[in-house]
Design a protein around this nucleic acid. Sequence first.
DNA 1: AAATATATAGACTGATTTGTCTATTACAAA
DNA 2: TTTGTAATAGACAAATCAGTCTATATATTT
Lengths: 189, 189
Amino acid sequence: MSGKSDPKQRMLETASRLFYTQGYNATGINQILEESKVAKASLYQHFGSKDQLGIAYLQSAREEWFAGLDKWTFAKHAPKQKVLACIDFLEYALRMNDFRGCKFLNMLAEIADSSPLMRQQIIEHKAKLREYIKELVIRSLPSHSPEEADLIGDSVYLLFEGAIVESKIYKDTWPVKSVKKMIKNMLGE
Amino acid sequence: MSGKSDPKQRMLETASRLFYTQGYNATGINQILEESKVAKASLYQHFGSKDQLGIAYLQSAREEWFAGLDKWTFAKHAPKQKVLACIDFLEYALRMNDFRGCKFLNMLAEIADSSPLMRQQIIEHKAKLREYIKELVIRSLPSHSPEEADLIGDSVYLLFEGAIVESKIYKDTWPVKSVKKMIKNMLGE
DNA sequence: AAATATATAGACTGATTTGTCTATTACAAA
DNA sequence: TTTGTAATAGACAAATCAGTCTATATATTT
């Protein structure tokens, strides 16, 4: 059960790397098996299908994402600073991943209507992120009306998402930097 | 050369439909040939490769997109109303396409680093859209400093893009509606 | 009518796809 | 030591992938 010798873990890590860098449809299970040095039967023993492996990939990506996000926001105390920490984490994560964008949005673009289960994973992840950000924004704006704070919360979330996809297009941090400035304005000086 | 009987046009239309609804990698050329009733040799005669067909798909999608955008903005005269018309066009287009999202972002997520030419098409399209919106926003805010207007222009663009991807996730118009409200605020009452 | 260009049908290649199956090996617990 | 579990290697299936090629047929133009 220790990392390197556990076939299931090895497979998931290799699949995660390949799905992200090459795309889900462009990655065959044979390549995953070769690079993780796992037998084909083991894949179907542990995951049952490529689709299920894709779901496991999204699940682990979600855990990783929120673990990172928590780490960055917990370092700050004021709600507004926590919101800005989300943006700083985003810039950090995008750089770390060479601007390959969001694992969930990339997958969503690939699967079309062929995997409702993966789609559900993606929706849940994004809905959770939306609530996460909205909660922080609302706490940053205690004097605003619920309607106003709600709108600003969604706007911060949509700017956040916009920054992800645009940084992937331009392979640059300008979208994140613009978004951070704009959010600072929206949350007040 | 009249529509239905022109193999090249027939192929491109069928490929566009299939690439968009099924994804680029998930669509084989054989399916395109069958559904467009075109011989395989004709495809390679006119396009040379599947990659080139993908590029032609993106080119025609760009023309279509800006033709639609122009139509909606030309109907308004005040710059601010033109910006809002962009959002209205977006909502119209997303609905029309059953919330399948942006053809360019979908493709970008699929090709990873396998097609620099397609990537270039995507970058050019988005850069053009960014300039289009920024120009309208700057004209909407004549009394703002260039730096402020520039930031708001990019923010509107990023909200616009965010609305596209989020409406695809949730298959709902709430992101577009939130973005329209927020942009109204940003451009002043 | 003859010549040229374009489209069609479809065989074929060689590689790859997901998934199943058999048979063998390694290891751990009883 | 025996028994049961998990991993391995790899053959195999049936389908599909992009792309090439030959041969035939249809139009258009000169």
